[in-house]
Design a protein around this nucleic acid. Structure first.
Lengths: 156, 156
DNA sequence: AGTGAAACAAATTCTCT
DNA sequence: AGAGAATTTGTTTCACT
């Protein structure tokens, strides 16, 4: 947990969330330590699960999926089967990158990346529309991305 | 753009979005090519902006910020000054990891990572509450994360 | 826990096809 | 464009503090 981390561990997490291609030497300089303890700390953070994985961040516009829709979904009923059908379907759809069970008027909110409005229409009609678990869909369109850090805050 | 990518480029993007720690040799095996052309393709994808950066994915629970709130915000007025104050403030807040300008009843939706409800209360009252640009705030709490890939779909 | 050197592996470049 | 060898650079381990 967080209280097992000292200031240097926190700095390492912040640096690597920003740029995981830093060499051990560069990271060591950033945290004012030599390479081997820095390396050992990074491995410990991986081993203990603070760092889940390392990924490349791909530009959605460049790969032709620059349109983002936040889609609020209400299930038809709140039985286990309906929820399971929905959850399994979301996990299998590539264009759905995030899916949260939420409080409020809707049951779920999903983030969908598509090429354009035509593809979104196809997604809603032919993919969501085919599911018996879904009661209603309310689409919120992203007009512009103001901020999208790929970092989680790390408490000090 | 996407039409400049062949099937191998797309495979490389998919693999690296899943795990950027693959060695050139491992990536080469995955795409059935030898190391040097694979390496050259990866560099090209970086150079041309398909890959924006490489990051470590940190577990929010492990670092004590496991609570997610999706916060819908309406500005008081739609003048440029108000929007600018809001946007600049969002960029400066670590707990706000995403901020989108949206269609619909609200102007923006932000994703906030906090420790617990007390911290969220503090965030709304003392951080958002201090801003003259904000008209109203509607909080949607994340009960559970069903899916959170750190990947964008790459069209085939 | 940290340092610095040594051993090892991977990234990067180059030449040839 | 891609393959394979050669070189450079980074990772990982180890002996010492």
């Amino acid at each position: 947990m967080i209280d097992k981390l000292d200031a240097i561990d926190i700095k390492i997490l912040k640096e690597l969330q920003h740029n995981s291609k830093l060499t051990t030497k560069e990271l060591a300089e950033a945290v004012h330590l030599s390479a081997s303890p820095t390396f050992e700390r990074q491995k410990r953070l991986e081993r203990e699960g603070y760092i889940k994985k390392y990924v490349a961040v791909v530009d959605p516009d460049m790969v032709g999926n620059g349109m983002i829709v936040l889609c609020n979904i209400r299930l038809k009923q709140h039985g286990k089967e309906y929820a399971q059908e929905f959850v399994d379907a979301m996990k299998g759809m590539e264009e759905v990158t995030e899916c949260y069970n939420t409080s409020g008027d809707f049951d779920f909110i999903i983030k969908v990346y598509v090429r354009d409005m035509h593809h979104y229409q196809d997604f809603v009609l032919n993919r969501l529309g085919e599911m018996k678990s879904i009661g209603s869909v309310h689409s919120v369109f992203v007009i512009g991305t103001v901020k999208d850090t790929h970092s989680v805050p790390v408490a000090q």
